[in-house]
């Protein structure tokens, strides 16, 4: 698609020259899209799995246990959502650099391993799970952690899919942080690749849009698959209390 076509609304919907794939070829010629794609995939998947682990565990503690300082620690975690990220960037760069994680996937992912939003979301869900289940498990002599793995997690299926989807999209689109903590073209994420295709003073809408489409593809695919699961999980797996 050429810039003229993009500014012309009639071709906006179905650009003609999209069919000749020239923009896509240009994208692949200018950047190592495959590598960037894999990098983003690793960051998004590993980061999301990490987030799911940290938030299900924390939510379990908040929903099923009574302990000293529960309110405080919950507010403490919730508070982390309210700290503006931009004031943390330089400090976190220093920390990651001291930990020797510069230029590694871990360096990119580690700051994203907890998102209090998901702890909150899972807590809300777990609090609405029927208490009887828990009593029953206790009578069966089931340990708390086993109860968590065998009952709470399976019953959180659809919520976990929502968390996965929302977290995947979020991490797939991070831009500034991976740029800061990596120094080689091989470690860059796909969003950096898109930025690389454009310059502040020159326009080449075609390749940018092609790259945007490539970047959008996985989130749309994952979305379509998981959306099915969310609906399925809701109708079939839901426990009517």
């Amino acid at each position: 698609m050429t810039t003229q076509e993009i500014t012309d609304i009639n071709t906006f919907i179905l650009p003609k020259s999209f069919r000749n794939w020239s923009n896509f070829k240009e994208v692949f010629a200018m950047t190592d899209m495959n590598r960037l794609f894999i990098n983003s995939m690793i960051v998004a998947v590993v980061g999301t799995v990490g987030r799911i682990i940290t938030s299900t565990l924390a939510a379990f503690a908040f929903a099923f246990f009574d302990f000293k300082g529960k309110k405080f620690w919950f507010s403490f975690l919730m508070g982390s959502m309210m700290v503006p990220g931009d004031v943390l960037i330089f400090s976190n760069y220093v920390t990651v650099s001291r930990l020797g994680m510069m230029g590694s996937y871990l360096g990119i992912i580690i700051v994203y391993l907890v998102f209090a939003n998901y702890i909150f979301m899972l807590r809300q869900h777990m609090m609405s799970l029927p208490r009887e289940l828990f009593e029953a498990a206790k009578i069966d002599g089931c340990s708390n952690f086993r109860f968590f793995l065998t009952t709470v997690i399976p019953l959180s299926g659809s919520i976990l899919v929502s968390v996965f989807l929302s977290s995947f999209v979020g991490l797939w689109n991070i831009y500034l942080w991976p740029l800061l903590v990596t120094n080689t073209n091989e470690m860059r994420t796909i969003q950096v690749g898109i930025s690389m295709l454009s310059s502040a003073e020159q326009l080449s809408w075609g390749p940018i849009m092609a790259a945007t489409l490539i970047a959008l593809l996985p989130t749309v695919i994952i979305f379509t698959i998981s959306q099915k699961f969310i609906v399925k999980g809701l109708t079939a797996g839901a426990v009517k209390g």
């Binding site: 503690a61 246990f65 302990f67 975690l77 943390l88 700051v111 702890i119 708390n144």
Partner: peptide, 28 residues
């Protein structure tokens, strides 16, 4: 509700570690 002293804290450790290191430490 379960009342056991140390167990819930174990579940919070991963989340708290990250949040303290990458949110509250720089925020302080």
């Amino acid at each position: 509700m379960i009342k056991r002293k140390s167990e819930p804290y174990l579940y919070l450790i991963p989340a708290l570690t990250i949040v303290i290191l990458f949110v509250y430490y720089p925020f302080v």
